[in-house]
Design a protein around this nucleic acid. Structure first.
Lengths: 239, 239
DNA sequence: TGTACATCAGTGAACGCGCGTTCACTGATGTAC
DNA sequence: TGTACATCAGTGAACGCGCGTTCACTGATGTAC
């Protein structure tokens, strides 16, 4: 009894496999030439096909690029989610730290895919809506850890002054977001802001490391990363 | 009496001016096509010249790119330095905040040049050593503010526990850097690490804003930025 | 001040290259009866 | 189970394009005497 939605025929199986191989070859291309330099002809060459054959699988170069972007977002998101799950049901700070380490590990293992999704945008390429969901997985994973920690009563509450510190505009943005994510009222807006700051910090540190801005100062970056993650957890409010 | 080192002849003056115009046209090209897409032919077209004429000014495409990179680093560095100088001799936190705001303002005003220097590296392009000095100006500007604040006794010292918190590897890296920058012993290594973290944070936030990762959450980012800068100053130790 | 020569900026043609995409085609695989 | 037809994957040639770089050249600008 075959799995539902699984390819039925040999043709379907061959198609699924070739689609995967095309994306793999394209990912290898990314490393050599970057997103701008991704070339259908180079991909087809690597697969021993004629370039026009790729059009049976992807309607255009941009569609292939989109597929790679979605895959990359999904991969790094899944890595974060898995790390959180494997960190088990202990204190939230363990899951948080595991997620940070997982994101960095994925980035270091796939620097060109990381650059594809978090680097400077490719001029002339407009990311379609289908990328929005996958792109949100990593930040949502962090928010999930945060919400669980609040539910478990682990978080240091800043007292009544916390919200006013945000200022009216930021408080409003955070409240809107908290409502949209169904976090209110358990998770205070200030914690959401702190998470966003922690996430931009994580991103900044990984990008500096990968893009070579740390060369000559804090390289290798393991110690700096570990230290920053620890400090950031206190900043977000993990006890 | 002409300024020393100033162009003497009409030919020299024309050369300096055209060099400037070429770089300006190239910067406009960056916005359209990105660093990868920067094309000598497009630049020459915009200037009404034949493409081979550019070789009188830049020996190759990569050399033009290098010139743009150095200019961009110098421009954002100078912006930071100027902002610090204009913030006057008051408390260091005022100069620090001014520097953060200046860096963000420059990035928003020149997003494509920002992407050129801080975005994902262009595959196949190797930044020459001449970029190292200009690249260091912004972080050094922050370090300068930090050192002044320590000299003025403004910084909250963390007590004797501060260094051990760093861990041996990070403490060693920071100590080496502090010595190289002639900051020891006035500026403790932990403050240098905190500055580095603040700088990666600043970079992460600006990049997220510019590269569109904030769309749908904390956009416009002014409030988030102001809040983060304030929190980060406390983190670094400004009182 | 005037002349002879050297330097330099810009031209236009050409080189060899790689690219995305289209199109009519052949032959293999799958489907309906 | 066997046959007739439809679907689909992959081919190879071609389209029009833009690119970086080289090279011999012309004419203007600068310099030395």
């Amino acid at each position: 009894m075959p799995t539902p939605n699984a390819p039925r025929t040999a043709r379907d199986r061959a198609r699924a496999e070739l689609t995967r191989e095309i994306k793999e070859a394209a990912r290898r291309q990314l490393a050599v030439a970057g997103a701008d330099g991704l070339s259908l002809r180079a991909v087809s060459r690597e697969l021993g096909m004629v370039s026009s054959a790729l059009y049976r699988y992807f309607p255009s170069r941009d569609d292939l690029l989109t597929a790679l972007i979605i895959d990359a977002y999904d991969a790094i998101g899944e890595q974060a989610e898995t790390a959180i799950a494997q960190a088990g049901p202990g204190p939230g700070r363990v899951r948080w730290a595991a997620a940070c380490a997982a994101v960095r590990a994925w980035a270091r293992a796939h620097p060109h895919e990381y650059a594809l999704i978090y680097g400077s945008p490719v001029p002339g390429y407009r990311a379609p809506e289908a990328t929005i969901g996958p792109a949100a997985r990593v930040p949502l994973a962090f928010v999930g850890v945060l919400a669980d920690a609040f539910a478990a009563g682990e978080m240091a509450t800043d007292g009544e002054g916390a919200e006013s510190e945000l200022g009216p505009e930021l408080a409003a943005q955070a409240a809107t977001l908290a409502a949209a994510l169904a976090l209110a009222p358990a998770v205070p807006p200030s914690a959401l802001v702190a998470t966003m700051i922690a996430w931009t910090q994580l991103y900044g540190m990984i990008s500096f490391e990968l893009f070579g801005q740390l060369v000559g100062s804090f390289e290798p970056a393991d110690a700096l990363f570990g230290h920053a993650v620890a400090r950031l957890m206190a900043f977000v409010g993990f006890s």
